[in-house]
C-alpha cells in the first residue's frame, strides 16, 4: 500500500470530531475506517486526524485515525493468540488474548473443533495429544461462530502450540511438529506444534526482563509473539538464525 498523507502539514494538529463533514462522497473519494457516508457526504465518526490514501483505481480512501489503540474485534482470516482453557475429545475452548499484533484488553472466547486441528487425517485427531489446558496457541479465525464463541482453525504449519508447560511445570522445547520435550525431566509430550524459530521464544522471555530496545519483527511476521515464515509442508526443525 502506498504511504498515506495526512491533511495539513505534519506539525499541525488538525483534528476532526464525530460529525465533521470531510468531503463529498463522489467517484474520487471512498469512505474508509473511522468515517461514514451519509446523504452524499463523508463524515468523521472518531476524534483524530484525517488520512488519505491513493488506491489502485485512482480513488482516494479517506480515513480517520485516533492514533491510539483502536477497539477491534476478531474478523475472519485474522491470526490470533489464545490460551486453552478446556479440552475434550471433540473440541477445545480457549480465550483469545491477542489479534495479530494487538493485545486485547477484553478477552474473547474461541473454540477449535477436532476436524480443524490439522489439514491431513482430519478425523483421526486425538485432541489430548495435540493440546492441553494452559497451552498458548496460534490460530486463525474461521468464522464468527453461532452462539458462544469464535470458530478457530490450526490447519496450517505455522499454527498450533506456541508455548506449553510440561507436567513438571517447565516451559517445553519443541522437537518436531508433533512433539515437545521438558528440559527438566527430558520427558517427551505430544502436541501439535506451530512452526516457529525456537530461538525467538527464549529471546523474548529474556529480553522482557531488561529494558533494552528490542529488535523489530521481520517484515513477513504475522503473529504477535513469534516471527513466522511460511515454509514447505515437510516438517523439519529450523536452523537458528
Amino acid at each position: 500500500m502506498s504511504q498515506g498523507s495526512s491533511a495539513g502539514s505534519p506539525g499541525e494538529a488538525i483534528c476532526v470530531v464525530p460529525g465533521d463533514c470531510l468531503c463529498a462522497a463522489d467517484d474520487k473519494h471512498v469512505a474508509g475506517k473511522g468515517t461514514i457516508e451519509r446523504s452524499g457526504y463523508i463524515y468523521s465518526c472518531l476524534v483524530g486526524r484525517v488520512y488519505t490514501q491513493q488506491q489502485e483505481d485512482k480513488t482516494e480512501l479517506v480515513e480517520v485515525r485516533t492514533g491510539q489503540e483502536q477497539n477491534i474485534v476478531p474478523t475472519a482470516g485474522s491470526v490470533v493468540t489464545a490460551k486453552v482453557t478446556y479440552v475434550n475429545p471433540r473440541f477445545l475452548r480457549c480465550e483469545i488474548l491477542c489479534i495479530g499484533e494487538t493485545v486485547l484488553k477484553h478477552k474473547f472466547r474461541g473454540m477449535l473443533k477436532k476436524e480443524d486441528v490439522r489439514a491431513t487425517e482430519r478425523d483421526k485427531v486425538k485432541m489430548y495429544e495435540c493440546f492441553r489446558p494452559g497451552d498458548v496457541i496460534l490460530a486463525k479465525v474461521v468464522s464468527l461462530g453461532d452462539a458462544l464463541s469464535y470458530v478457530l482453525s490450526t490447519a496450517e504449519n505455522e499454527l498450533g502450540v506456541a508455548l506449553a508447560h510440561s507436567e513438571a511445570g517447565a516451559l517445553m522445547v519443541p522437537l518436531s511438529w508433533a512433539e515437545m520435550r521438558c528440559p527438566l525431566t527430558q520427558a517427551r509430550e505430544l502436541r501439535k506444534v506451530a512452526k516457529i524459530p525456537p530461538e525467538d521464544v527464549a529471546f523474548r522471555l529474556a529480553r522482557s526482563a531488561d529494558r533494552r530496545p528490542r529488535r523489530r519483527l521481520s517484515p513477513g511476521a504475522t503473529g504477535p509473539l513469534l516471527s513466522i515464515q511460511h515454509t514447505a509442508d515437510q516438517p523439519e526443525v529450523q536452523a537458528v538464525a
Binding site: 488474548l97 491477542c98 493485545v103 486485547l104 498458548v136 522482557s208 528490542r214 509473539l225
Partner: peptide
Amino acid sequence: MAADMRAIQPESL
C-alpha cells in the same frame, strides 16, 4: 514485546 508477555504469560514476566 513485554505487552504480549503480560497477556500470555503474566506470572513468568
